[in-house]
Simulated scan of single mutants.
Amino acid sequence: MKLPVPARQMLPLLGITVSAFVFNTSEFMPIALLMDISRSFSQTEAETGIMITVYAWMVAVLSLPLMLLGGKLSPKPLLLLTLSVFSIGQVISGLAPTFGILMGGRIVVASAHAIFWSVAAPLAARLVDKGKSPFALSMVATGTAVAMVFGLPLGRVIGLSLGWRMTFLSIAGVTILALIYLFFVFPRMENDESFSLGDLPGLFRNPAISIIFGMTLFFATSYFTTYSYIEPFLHTVAGFSAEGITACLMLVGASGFLGSFVFSKMFNTYPHAIILIGAAGLIVPLLLFLPATVFWPLLLLLCLTMGVVSTLYGVAMQSEIIRHLSISAAPVAMSIYSGIFNVGIGGGTFLGSTITAAGGLPYIGLAGGLLAAISGALCYFRYLPILRKK
């Protein structure tokens, strides 16, 4: 079977894909093991759950300064160092005797996360020939989709069978194997230019990049306003069984494969359409979330659409950042993008919590849909006109 890219490009690309898998599995793993972790430290789930919020906000705060610092290294040493720090954080988390040390371990992991998602997409695009970057970025997105479909359930099974600590230690083991693999197959690359702090204002003066940042804030907030509380919504409002909720969440994760496939096959031909679908595609599904509870197949279709749109948006925006900027500026812009996305995660989770606490659980889709409309409007009225002028 003929590979989409030469083997010398596919091998390191597979390493980045596996790394994306472990990073995404690790980010959301505490959600799947929250009850067990809270019991081991004699805490409530609410007290333990703070580490999820802290993780997201630490990524948001650390992304830019760590990328500016790490950008002084050439790509291969930076990638290997990031994986090393990530595995150390996982070991600290797995062996933590107190909740405070567990939090410290998660902050170490968040530091590695901040750098990895700043460089993963630009490096994947640089690994392949010109014109093949949509495929490379779809591979990274596939690692994310696999994590959502298989990584989280597998981690939960390990945690329930052998204890939650073994889940973190297992992730560390897989990361070390990925690190060794990349040490041998990842090519040496040099930074063609250097990016300094003084160049930073120029990123925000770039109209396309600044609009991407704005769209991302509203997109991530809209998505996580609904997704963070999709489990209680499906149970309380839609009347799904526990098995039905599990199947629905796996469908959302699996839809990432479809989104990745659509992007790799269609972005080069229909870039404007893919960008608009990504930025505005949550409006209808989220606004229909409550009405669809009377017909469960429609609700499943809406969940599938959410997953596809989320993948399309994430990969399309990363592709656009890379296209608009130089090799040295793209990772820095990606770190800002990652930070803004995590601000959206935290903001969406907080907004969903506030709405739910006020008795508005049935209306989380409405709130998310209104925010998605802002993202769609920014894309249609501000971003696409810039692209049409080029």
Rank of each mutant, 00 (worst) to 15 (best):
L249S: 09
L160G: 07
L378K: 07
A208M: 14
R205Q: 15
L249W: 13
P30F: 10
K76C: 14
F257R: 04
T269V: 14
V108C: 05
T354G: 00
A316E: 04
T305S: 04
I115W: 03
M35H: 11
P297V: 10
K132F: 05
L69I: 14
L102C: 06
S93I: 12
G159H: 03
R323S: 11
L387W: 05
F261K: 13
L14G: 09
N24I: 15
V119H: 03
W117T: 03
G347V: 01
L182K: 10
L73S: 06
I88W: 00
M67N: 08
A20M: 12
S338T: 15
S93E: 09
G369E: 08
Y181L: 13
V119E: 05
T216F: 04
A114G: 05
G105F: 09
I245Q: 00
F341A: 10
R8G: 01
L300N: 09
I364V: 15
S40Y: 05
V252Q: 00
G360Y: 03
V252R: 00
L62K: 01
V91T: 13
L69P: 06
W117D: 07
A110M: 02
I340A: 00
Y337F: 13
S93H: 05
G376P: 03
K130D: 15
L290S: 10
T44Q: 07
G376F: 04
N24C: 11
Y55E: 04
T53W: 06
A141P: 01
I171A: 06
F381M: 13
V108S: 01
F86D: 08
I283N: 00
M306Q: 05
Q90P: 08
G151F: 09
I50P: 00
M306R: 00
V174F: 07
L251I: 15
K72E: 12
P362F: 03
K132V: 11
L200W: 12
G369P: 02
G100W: 14
S335V: 03
P4Y: 01
I245R: 00
T293V: 13
S42V: 14
I336W: 03
